[in-house]
Write a protein that binds this DNA or RNA. Structure first.
Lengths: 200, 200
DNA sequence: ATCTTTATTGAGTGATTACTCAATCGACAC
DNA sequence: GTGTCGATTGAGTAATCACTCAATAAAGAT
């Protein structure tokens, strides 16, 4: 009976505890000793899985990004129109940020931290932009559905639109159905922002 | 000859050094001793002006916000149309973020830090939203120029639109005139997002 | 059963931290 | 000159930190 429990559980327990504590106290504000005790392992065990505290943070960041990409892939609807795929992508991006608040908050925290600047090659990918996003924007540009804008600009604005949506919904406390309604509304606004005005 | 130099210069030197170091190393990552030495004062002097390191951070944040508001007020054009005021406000908000990169970056860093959560009454105002913004959005809503949307949503989306613009422009390296062109373009996109579709 | 390798522990270490405080300094009043 | 009071200093302190390491346990492999 080969369960992957023994070795992986502790590493994941450490990552999970680190996430909670980093969000609450910040990176330098949380001692490795506290991460270990919250994860239910000895202090030394942490350094068995992660050579340094910095390596732990970067692993955590990469792991969260991978989860986000996996979540979007699971919910992707590849065979539909560009608009539907855009709506789908934005909707599930928001859903993910609301369902994994700590994870999303941490990526934002990380994004404006000294770690992010010195990343370079260490992180697998920069930002939360997945391949899915870029491919979709490229297609929307090539088919003239989007206004002719630099793809980096579209990427930046979509990403910050996601952050803005998250922040708005966090501060209100809508029930799920009302929340979905608001997300749909914002998606329409965003879509209208990027697309060519249609002839009627 | 009463120059305001002696007492204020040191406090401002400390705040200025702290800003530089916080942006580079983060809050917990920069020792108070280094802030003091970079500011050219003795370590103890820092604690004469700021009781604790936390008080220093909060003072810094409030001071930056005040500067931002002052900058917008200076460049405000009160007697023009709503659209012109909107463009003006957005344009100078972006200009400020590009001219005071460290200040802007710090506010974002602060926004996603444990300090921000526990602010409550300590900070004068939350976020960088100035009175000017809210007043303008309210007017645009009342005159039906904006689509009927919650003002908090408009506020959130405008703020993140500013962040998105900042991030895009930071990563490109356009000359000033090209940069202004891009900002204008983004303003048009944003304006179109919020306003009622006009009859032609 | 023996060997090898890896996982786990927690006391220990040297460096660093935020903050204190008694001692000076400097400016101004009288 | 004497006194007063805030500004300034930097050595000192108690606490905390990331990380090490020698010892032990567990798990396989042969």
């Amino acid at each position: 009976m080969i369960t992957q429990s023994t070795p992986f559980d502790k590493q994941e327990a450490i990552l999970s505890a680190a996430l909670r504590l980093f969000v609450e106290y910040g990176f330098h504000g949380t001692p490795t000793s506290k991460i270990a005790s919250e994860a239910g392992v000895a202090h030394g065990t942490l350094f068995h899985y992660f050579k340094t505290k910095d390596e732990l943070v970067i692993t955590l960041y990469n792991s969260i990004n991978a989860n986000f990409r996996a979540y979007l892939s699971e919910n992707a609807t590849p065979a539909t129109s560009i608009k539907d795929r855009f709506k789908n992508l934005f909707y599930y991006s928001v859903q993910w940020s609301l369902q994994y608040k700590n994870e999303f908050y941490f990526t934002q925290q990380f994004h404006f931290s000294p770690h992010f600047k010195q990343l370079g090659t260490e992180a697998e990918e920069m930002g939360q932009q997945s391949y899915l996003h870029r491919a979709l924007y490229t297609e929307a540009l090539q088919t003239n559905i989007f206004k002719p804008l630099p793809i980096e600009l579209i990427t930046s604005l979509c990403m910050s639109q996601l952050v803005g949506t998250y922040e708005y919904l966090i501060n209100t406390n809508f029930p799920d159905d009302k929340q979905d309604e608001v997300i749909d509304k914002i998606i329409e606004l965003t879509w209208a922002m990027f697309t060519q005005p249609e002839a009627i």
